[in-house]
Amino acid sequence: MEYILMIIGCILVNNIVFSQFLGICPFLGVSGKTGTAAGMGAAVTFVMALATLVTSTVNKYVLLPLGLKFMQTIVFILIIAALVQMVEIILKKISPALYQALGIYLPLITTNCAVLGVAIQVTQKADFSILDSTIFATATAIGFLLAIVIFAGLREQLELNKVPNAMKGVPIALVTAGILAMAFMGFANLV
């Protein structure tokens, strides 16, 4: 039950894009088409779950016992970068089809602040076990997937409408995202 509440909370109430403002760059950059948006969302979900599993393990068994908490940012970003590279190589070898689908998005994920953000966030919650952290990260990433797919659908419709010259492209996309964020605020008291 606790986990169900946590998952709903991460996906709808504290949606990573609309209420925490993490991962905005891919959210604006790769949301032109629903298909590519879904691919990006899936790649982020995969990497975020894996990265948080590794970083929270390293944090618990290496950094904290040795008193190296100040090295957190450096260690985490290196782990994420190495992990993304590794996933890319393994995927290429094992499942070329999946690599074809996700491949181009993988390098972009290293600089996706959502991945590092969640990895740091879970270390700040003292009572989180490694399992809790991984579930939290997976649910958060599904929230990202949901947000980017809905937003891509809206932008596809937006293409067909007449927009003032200065508002074309990113500005109107931001206003749309704002309205979407208002809709997500409706979930505020759900959990």
Partner: peptide, 9 residues
């Protein structure tokens, strides 16, 4: 949160 998107836009 929504205000941030509106103002930046």
């Amino acid at each position: 949160a929504p205000g941030a998107f509106f103002v930046l836009g």
